[in-house]
Amino acid sequence: MAILKVRIGSLELSNPVIAASGTFGYGMEFAERLDLAAIGAFSTKGLSLKPRGGNPMPRICETPCGMINSIGLENVGVDAFEMDKLPAIRKSGAKVIANFFGETEEEYTELARRLDAMDGVHALEMNVSCPNVEKGGIEFGSDPAFLEKLTAGVKKVCGKPLIVKLSPNVADIKPFAKAVENGGGDAISAINTLKGMSVDVKTRRPRIKRVIGGLSGPAIKPVAVRMVYECARTVKIPVIGLGGIASLDDALEFLIAGATAVQVGTMNFVEPGICQRLAEELNAYCEKEKIADIASLIGSLITE
């Protein structure tokens, strides 16, 4: 066995393959499809203080090598997560990253406080691609100064590793990566979905009800690799890379570009066992290539 262990702040993962938020439910949905303890970790569906019903249908459509979604952050809420979901997950041996979002700064800190106190939650992942109702609906993650302040405020109440998940819908992602580091965030995950749109030309209607949604899947991979590369060169904290990963080579691309770990999102829908397969293939690859420790692969991009 090659050493596949990686560190995200104080959390050690047995391997760097993580299932991405919104594509892995609350974990147990996958218990019969893979061994939850065999993957590095999984990130829960984004949690809010109160349950949310989400957006009107249609919520998803397929595009070339990808899909657009506008689910509307539907989730059971943090109380039901703690009462109904967490007890079973705790027994499964999975490492759990609780993904969360709020509509105000206050909600973010309150959620972080709650999740930090929960036995069975190993790290927090803060989704900042959400509208701030106190600031006229502009996204939390769209102003570096504000993002730094939000990160610092949340980190104050959060002893567990805090991962901040960046939005790719900005002109330059580097100041946002820096803002997370300056605010005391333990890691960055990038990228969330890219804003996208698709039109049914027969009916002249948008193919999802909310018109604009988030593009994910293999189609976004080159954009994601570029942004992960830029983040990793900007900060010293670990960067978790995601966006379009569907194969071992895809995961390797992110690691070589500087990601400490990777997440797999949309492909969980197509191949529910993919995270475990990639973890196993990563091990086989390291053995074959005589890479004793995955650390030597991370950021090993050759540019000259």
Binding site: G22, T23, F30, M57, I60, M67, N69, F269, P272
Partner: peptide, 22 residues
């Protein structure tokens, strides 16, 4: 019938409003 993403309950792409909620 609705458009489906995963088919096993995780993507929340195919919800229906019913008397007992979503």
């Amino acid at each position: 019938e609705e458009r489906m993403g995963c088919g096993f309950g995780v993507c929340l792409g195919c919800v229906v409003d019913t008397a007992a909620g979503k």
